[in-house]
Simulated scan of single mutants.
Amino acid sequence: MAESRREPALVRHFARITDVGFAALTLVFFVAVALATGVRSPWQAAIPLGLLLGALLLVRRRWPMTVLLLSISGIFAYRLTGHWSPAGWIWPAAVAYFTAATTPRVRWVAAIGLAQLLYSAVDIRSVLDEDPTRFLFHVAGEGVLLAILVAAGLLHAAVTRWRERLRETDSRARAAEERLRASHEVHDIVAHTLAVVGVQLNVAADTLQEDPAAAAAALRLAKDVRNRAMTDLRSLIAVLRDTPGDTAPQPDLASLGTLVADARAAGLEVTLDERGDPAAVPAVPAVAVYRVVQESLANTLKHAHASRAEVTIGYQPRAVTVEITDNGRGGGDVTEGHGLAGMRERVSALGGALSAGPIPGGGFAVRADIPVAGSAV
Score class of each variant (00 low, 15 high):
residue 117 L to H: 06
residue 136 L to V: 04
residue 116 Q to K: 01
residue 128 L to V: 14
residue 132 P to R: 04
residue 138 H to S: 11
residue 137 F to P: 02
residue 134 R to W: 03
residue 119 Y to C: 01
residue 123 D to M: 08
residue 123 D to L: 04
residue 136 L to Y: 07
residue 141 G to S: 07
residue 138 H to L: 06
residue 131 D to R: 07
residue 133 T to Y: 08
residue 142 E to G: 08
residue 143 G to T: 14
residue 140 A to G: 04
residue 122 V to R: 15
residue 139 V to Y: 04
residue 141 G to D: 11
residue 140 A to F: 09
residue 138 H to W: 10
residue 117 L to D: 05
residue 128 L to F: 13
residue 117 L to Y: 10
residue 141 G to Y: 09
residue 139 V to K: 06
residue 143 G to Y: 09
residue 120 S to Y: 04
residue 131 D to C: 00
residue 144 V to D: 10
residue 125 R to T: 05
residue 140 A to I: 13
residue 141 G to M: 12
residue 133 T to Q: 12
residue 136 L to M: 05
residue 118 L to D: 10
residue 123 D to N: 14
residue 140 A to W: 15
residue 122 V to F: 10
residue 146 L to W: 09
residue 131 D to L: 00
residue 146 L to I: 14
residue 137 F to E: 11
residue 141 G to I: 02
residue 120 S to T: 03
residue 132 P to M: 02
residue 142 E to H: 09
residue 131 D to F: 03
residue 118 L to V: 12
residue 130 E to C: 01
residue 135 F to I: 07
residue 134 R to H: 12
residue 133 T to F: 08
residue 131 D to A: 04
residue 123 D to Q: 05
residue 119 Y to R: 06
residue 116 Q to T: 10
residue 122 V to H: 12
residue 138 H to G: 00
residue 124 I to G: 11
residue 142 E to W: 08
residue 121 A to S: 14
residue 117 L to W: 15
residue 141 G to T: 02
residue 127 V to T: 13
residue 121 A to H: 10
residue 127 V to Y: 00
residue 145 L to A: 03
residue 116 Q to G: 09
residue 118 L to W: 10
residue 139 V to A: 04
residue 132 P to S: 02
residue 125 R to I: 11
residue 128 L to M: 14
residue 116 Q to S: 12
residue 119 Y to M: 10
residue 119 Y to D: 01
residue 142 E to D: 09
residue 128 L to Y: 13
residue 140 A to Y: 11
residue 132 P to W: 10
residue 127 V to H: 10
residue 134 R to Y: 15
residue 117 L to E: 06
residue 130 E to L: 12
residue 131 D to V: 00
residue 145 L to G: 01
residue 130 E to S: 04
residue 119 Y to T: 03
residue 127 V to W: 05
residue 129 D to F: 06
residue 137 F to G: 09
residue 123 D to I: 04
residue 131 D to G: 00
residue 120 S to Q: 11
residue 135 F to T: 07
residue 129 D to K: 12
residue 122 V to W: 14
residue 131 D to K: 05
residue 137 F to V: 05
residue 142 E to M: 12
residue 134 R to P: 03
residue 123 D to V: 09
residue 119 Y to V: 04
residue 124 I to D: 09
residue 143 G to I: 12
residue 145 L to F: 08
residue 118 L to A: 01
residue 120 S to W: 03
residue 138 H to Y: 00
residue 144 V to F: 14
residue 132 P to L: 08
residue 143 G to E: 03
residue 120 S to K: 06
residue 137 F to T: 15
residue 123 D to G: 13
residue 146 L to S: 09
residue 117 L to T: 00
residue 120 S to I: 01
residue 122 V to G: 15
residue 121 A to V: 10
residue 132 P to G: 03
residue 129 D to V: 10
residue 134 R to S: 14
residue 146 L to F: 06
residue 125 R to F: 09
residue 118 L to Q: 08
residue 146 L to H: 13
residue 124 I to Q: 15
residue 124 I to N: 15
